[in-house]
Design a protein around this nucleic acid. Structure first.
Lengths: 174, 174
DNA sequence: ATAAAATAGTTGCGCGCGCAATATTTGTAA
DNA sequence: TTACAAATATTGCGCGCGCAACTATTTTAT
């Protein structure tokens, strides 16, 4: 279990032996993921924050809602998608509502529930922030990798993401 | 510049066209990195926290010091490596010092400076926590990818990390 | 039908961490 | 040498967020 890497050594010979992933390298891998995320956050937070006066985490909430056709999601779903706790999400929605980007709506079927819904202002701000965000990302990642490498990276990361974070999938509108 | 991906479409035909990385996919990529990091953090924080009563971020500090032969690093270097602000690091070292895992030492050359140094207790706790941590990682990542895929992932992430987080490199003992 | 359990969402509380300001020491220029 | 700028580390302050507790509603079991 702890050394499943060794199972793959013999099937293609010594060439693979050099590529063996030791336990130490696994720690390097997860450390690398943390460092990359941290570095990206530091580099990308500035523009979005200045653009609509909203933290990166709150911007992700708006992005999720923007991608949803109805522009609204249940609080619980939004919490699962963003990885925030219910309380954390509630506070974030508070702030976004206070800023006029979101409004809460009652759920017809379930009187306990509430939707977080983008206002018209929120939609507009999210769209312009998204454009800025794309530009930032392009500037940051330009020349770092080849397109097929980015594609490969998405595939590999998805495998880990699906393992550790199954609720993050997009979609499930309404 | 914002669409450097398109440069690679024509050189191998329509097969590559399917792999084209659009701007939207770049957003997916960085979102994936955040989600993966968040998911890993949620899955891995529990054991380490219970083991030595220390948060994941503080554990990273101890890991950095454990890998340093002298088991000590300047505060500024440690801040750069961990991505914490100077103040954040100072508080974290406070807490670790209070718990007996670290001690502060004056720097001989630079009377402004201070080392964060692992105590014997800190070394022992970091070592056993590291073993637990390795097991957690192995359990979590077992069967998710092939070894050469993990290797590839490390290579690709390193490219981004070096771009966004140049100070995170290990080493620079003393 | 009624009680018990599960679910949705919101607060009290505390903690971690970044920003700005401060004190101290080091480096640089006049 | 003296004055000024840069660097190192530490605090005051505020904010974001998770945990636990709570209310309100829905579902399930008896």
């Amino acid at each position: 279990m702890s050394d499943n890497a060794t199972k793959f050594i013999t099937d293609t010979g010594n060439d693979v032996l050099l590529q063996q992933i030791s336990e130490t390298d696994r720690i390097t891998l997860i450390g690398l993921i943390f460092e990359t995320a941290s570095g990206l956050r530091h580099n990308l937070s500035e523009t979005v924050e200045c653009e609509i006066g909203v933290g990166g985490q709150s911007f992700e909430i708006m992005l999720r809602l923007l991608r949803t056709p109805s522009h609204r999601l249940r609080m619980a779903d939004l919490a699962a998608q963003t990885g925030l706790s219910p309380s954390g999400l509630s506070r974030a929605v508070d702030k976004l509502t206070q800023a006029g980007h979101l409004k809460r709506e009652d759920c017809a079927n379930d009187r306990r529930g509430a939707y977080a819904t983008l206002t018209q202002l929120g939609i507009e701000h999210a769209e312009i922030a998204l454009i800025k965000h794309k530009q930032d990302i392009d500037n940051l990642l330009c020349g770092v990798m080849r397109p097929q490498e980015e594609d490969k990276l998405v595939k590999l990361l998805t495998k880990i993401r699906d393992r550790v974070y199954p609720n993050a999938v997009m979609g499930a509108d309404e």
